[in-house]
């Protein structure tokens, strides 16, 4: 009985530790996809001045859309005739429920929603390039957190599980 409980606690500790570490690395992946997303938008706008509906239809086929699943959703919503700010806000709000990104990261994303299509080309391009820079800073910070907090939390959870298991035995 005691042995079963201690093994369960050990496994729980490992799972919690790995999950916490995974959340930290997931944020890095999402932020990297977000940076690619902004870079693609910059390229599309500067080269072709693509209309917002077409822009999102194109982006939804890009690899970054696998991680940022709100992108194809926005494209679908725009194709149905929803106005961009509404489509963007709704899809990002849904994405937020499952994302590992922080509030600060979402502020950057929301800023993108306010910029795309709403100003002249030069203003949009300068806005998006500043968002790329902000995302790069967030990526650096997220990577450091993976190295420090991520590892620490994983070790803490695993050791706590192991300690609890030893105590029960």
């Amino acid at each position: 009985m005691n042995l079963t409980a201690s093994v369960s606690l050990l496994i729980l500790g490992i799972i919690c530790g790995c999950y916490t570490a995974f959340r930290y690395s997931k944020r890095v992946r999402e932020l990297c996809a977000l940076e690619t997303f902004f870079t693609r938008i910059y390229a599309e706008l500067s080269l072709e001045q693509t209309a917002t509906t077409t822009l999102f239809a194109k982006l939804s086929m890009h690899s970054c859309a696998k991680t940022l699943w709100f992108v194809p959703r926005i494209a679908e919503s725009l194709a149905q005739g929803t106005l961009f700010p509404q489509a963007f806000a709704d899809c990002v709000a849904d994405y937020r429920k499952t994302s590992a990104m922080t509030n600060e990261d979402f502020l950057i994303l929301e800023k993108a929603g306010e910029t795309i299509g709403a100003y002249d080309l030069m203003t949009q391009l300068s806005g998006i390039s500043s968002l790329v820079q902000s995302t790069a800073v967030q990526i650096e910070e997220a990577k450091q957190l993976v190295q420090t907090k991520g590892r620490l939390m994983r070790s803490v959870f695993i050791l706590s599980g192991a300690a609890a298991a030893v105590l029960i035995v």
């Binding site: 693509t50 209309a51 917002t52 961009f84 700010p85 795309i116 299509g117 709403a118 002249d120």
Partner: peptide, 14 residues
């Protein structure tokens, strides 16, 4: 203006 351009001021610029 944003609504009339369907939030695509960039493509309406020309």
């Amino acid at each position: 203006l944003r609504c009339l351009t369907e939030y695509s001021l960039q493509s309406a610029q020309p």
